[in-house]
Design a protein around this nucleic acid. Structure first.
Lengths: 336, 336
DNA sequence: TATCCCTTTGCAATCGAATGCAAAATAATA
DNA sequence: TATTATTTTGCATTCGATTGCAAAGGGATA
C-alpha cells in the first residue's frame, strides 16, 4: 500500500508545462532553458518527487540492479566478498539484490528466476557445493544477462570468472607443512566435483610430488564444506588408527571441525598434529591455537567480479569474456 | 542489455487471441475456458514467458519486494535474523532486498532512498549503533510504507517493533554471576543511547539491586559494539588497577575482545575473572573456554518481524502497530 | 426457430516515464 | 521589418501488463 507519489505529470500540471519538458529537465538533458530547469528542479524537490523506477525501467528495458547469489552470507568469505561487490556497485549507481542459495541447488535456481523476473542488469554467483548441472545459468546466457562466477564456479557455462589461484595456495600450504617436518599429510576436501576442491587437490599433489612424498589415496577424503566434515573425518582416521601427522583442509570451517575432535581426544596442535585451513576466516584468530590458513582476499575478488560485470553490462560493442585470478597468500599462525 | 523476452502480446498474437485473455489465463483468473487456459499456459511455457515485473508493478502500484536494512551481515545475529525473514518472505511470494548500512547513518539513509525508489512494499530495519535521528525513517511513515524495527530500534517513530526482553536477559546473566560468587561485576556496554544498551543496563542494575550489591558507576563503561571495545576496556581496567572479578558485555564480540586482552595478560577465565556475553554467536562455542551468553533467537525475531510486516502490507483495513517481545535465555558454558 | 441467459473473449484505457519529431518561441541576420 | 537560424517546448507514441465494460459465442428453454 504505497502512498500516491508526485509524478512527472503532477509537476508539469502544477507548472503549466508539458511532462516531456519536466522529464528532460529532471535528468539534465540538453534543450531546456536554465530558467525552466531550475523551476522544475525546485518544484520537484518541494513536491518530494521520487522517480518511479518501474516506469523508467519498463521504458528503458534496463535496470540498475545487480543480482548476487551466494551459498550463505554468514560465512566470512562471502560477507567480505559482498562488501567488495557493494562498494563498486554503490559507486556506479547500482543496487545489489542479494539472495542466498543456502547450499540448495533448487533455491539457487529459484533465485535465478526471481532475478530474471526482477530484470537485474547482471548477476554475480558463487555456486552451491552441490551444483553440478548448469541449466539455470544457461538460461541467463540465453537471455543475454551478463554473468560472473566467483570462487566456486561451474564448467561449461560461457561466462566471466573470478577465482583464487587455489592450486598455488594449496601448494604453498602443503609445502610449508612439509618444510616444518610433517610427513603424513592428509587433505580433507569438500565435494569432489567442486572446482575449488579439484584445484586445491592439485596443489596438494604438486607439493607432495615436489618433495618426493608418495601419494597415499587414503589420506585424501571428501565431504561437505562444513565443520562436521572435519570432525567426522578425524573420527574416521582415529577409528582406522590411521591418523596423519598433519592435515590440510579445503576451508577453515572444516579445520575447525577437525580441531574440535582433536581436542576432544586430547591431541596437541601443532605438536602431535599440524593443521592448515583455507580462506582466513575471522575465527582462525580466535581459536587456540590460532589457525594457519590461506588468505583469499575475498573483498578484492568481490570488487573485481563487480567491475567485470559492470563492464559487460555497459559495453556497447561485442564483449569478450574474461577469467581473472586473484593471488592468495599463506598466513602462518600457531597451528603448524 | 536484456534480450527480447516473450510478452503477453506475443503469446496472444501467436494464438490469435487477445492479450487480455492471455493475461487472465496466465494468472488463473475466472472467466477463461479450460481449453483456452491450457493452450495459453502451454504456449507460455514453450515461449519461455517471464512476466515483466516492472510493467506489472507499475500497473498495480505495488511490489512483492521487502527491504531489509541491517548494520552488517557478517554478524551471526543478523545473518540468522535474515534467514528468518527470508523464510517467511519466500513462502509468501516476496523477494527480500537486503542492504547493509555498515554502521553508517549516511549509508542507512541512502539505503532507505534506494528502497523507496525501488518501491519496496515494506521495510525491516535494525539501526546502526550511531543512529539517533530518525528523519529518514519518518520519510517512510509519511509515504505510508510499512516499517518494522527489530532488535536495535529508535524511539519516536510510529512503527512496529520486534525486540528481545533485553532487561530480563541481562538480569538473568548478572544474577547468575552473582550466584556463582562473583562480587565485583562490570558491565561493558555499547553506545549509551542505543535501546539495547539501555535495556541491558537496566537488567544489570536490577540484578545488583536484587542481590543488595551497591552500584559502582566506574564498573559500567560505554563503547562500540565491536571487539576493540572489550579489548580496550579491559586494558583500561588494568591500567587503573580496577579489574572486576566478572564482566557482563553488551554482546559477544565485546566479550571476545575482552577475552583477548585477558589472555594476553595471563588471567584465567573463569577462575580469576568470569565473562558473560550476549547473543549466542557461533564463535562462543569455538573459543576457550566456551562463552556463557544469552540466546536471543534471532531467527525467530526475523520471522516475527517479517510476519508482522506482511500483515501490515496486506492489511486492507486500519492497521494497528505492534511491539513484540521475544524471550531470551541464558546459555551457561565454561566462562563463568 | 426464436428468445434468454450464462460463459467466454475482445476492446480500450491506464500506470509513469522516455523520446523522435514537429511546432512554437526566441534570437540573429539581412 | 522581414527572413532565417536556433533554442525551447509540446505532441503523441511506446514500454508490458492489467481490468471494467461491452460484445460475441454457446447452450438451454419455450
Amino acid at each position: 500500500m504505497i502512498n500516491k507519489n508526485a509524478t512527472v505529470k503532477d509537476i508539469a500540471k502544477k507548472l503549466g508545462i508539458h511532462q516531456s519538458t519536466v522529464s528532460r529537465a529532471l535528468r539534465n538533458l540538453p534543450g531546456i532553458s536554465p530558467k525552466t530547469r531550475k523551476l522544475v528542479l525546485d518544484t520537484a524537490k518541494k513536491m518530494n518527487y521520487i522517480p518511479n523506477l518501474f516506469a523508467r525501467n519498463l521504458k528503458n528495458n534496463v535496470s540498475k540492479t545487480i543480482g548476487i547469489i551466494i551459498p550463505e552470507i554468514r560465512h566470512d568469505f562471502f560477507s567480505n566478498a559482498i562488501s567488495g561487490i557493494e562498494h563498486i556497485a554503490y559507486n556506479r549507481g547500482y543496487v545489489p539484490l542479494l539472495l542466498q542459495s543456502n547450499e540448495s541447488v533448487e533455491r539457487e535456481s529459484l533465485n535465478i528466476d526471481a532475478m530474471i523476473s526482477n530484470r537485474v542488469a547482471g548477476i554475480i554467483v558463487s555456486i552451491t557445493q552441490n551444483t553440478t548441472n548448469g541449466d539455470h545459468f544457461q538460461k541467463l546466457i540465453d537471455l543475454n544477462i551478463p554473468l560472473v562466477f566467483f570462487d566456486r564456479i561451474i564448467d561449461g557455462i560461457q561466462s566471466n570468472k573470478v577465482i583464487s589461484d587455489d592450486k598455488s595456495g594449496a601448494k604453498a600450504a602443503v609445502d610449508y607443512l612439509i618444510k616444518k617436518g610433517y610427513k603424513k599429510i592428509a587433505f580433507l576436501s569438500g565435494p569432489e566435483e567442486l572446482n575449488i576442491c579439484k584445484n586445491r587437490l592439485e596443489g596438494y599433489l604438486a607439493a607432495l610430488k615436489n618433495n618426493n612424498i608418495a601419494y597415499d589415496k587414503n589420506l585424501v577424503t571428501y565431504g561437505s564444506l562444513h565443520e562436521d566434515n572435519g570432525y567426522d573425518t578425524i573420527s574416521k582416521f582415529l577409528d582406522e588408527e590411521n591418523l596423519p601427522d598433519a592435515i590440510f583442509t579445503v576451508n577453515d570451517p572444516v579445520a575447525i571441525g577437525a580441531f574440535k575432535k582433536l581436542k576432544e581426544v586430547g591431541l596437541k596442535i601443532p605438536d602431535q598434529i599440524g593443521v592448515i585451513g583455507f580462506s582466513n576466516n575471522l575465527v582462525t584468530t580466535l581459536i587456540e591455537p590460532t589457525l594457519t590458513t590461506v588468505e583469499q582476499y575475498p573483498g578484492e575478488m568481490g570488487k573485481r567480479a563487480a567491475q567485470i560485470l559492470l563492464e559487460q553490462i555497459e559495453s556497447k560493442e561485442e564483449y569478450f569474456l574474461r577469467t581473472e585470478v586473484i593471488h592468495s597468500k599463506l598466513i602462518v599462525r600457531n597451528s603448524t
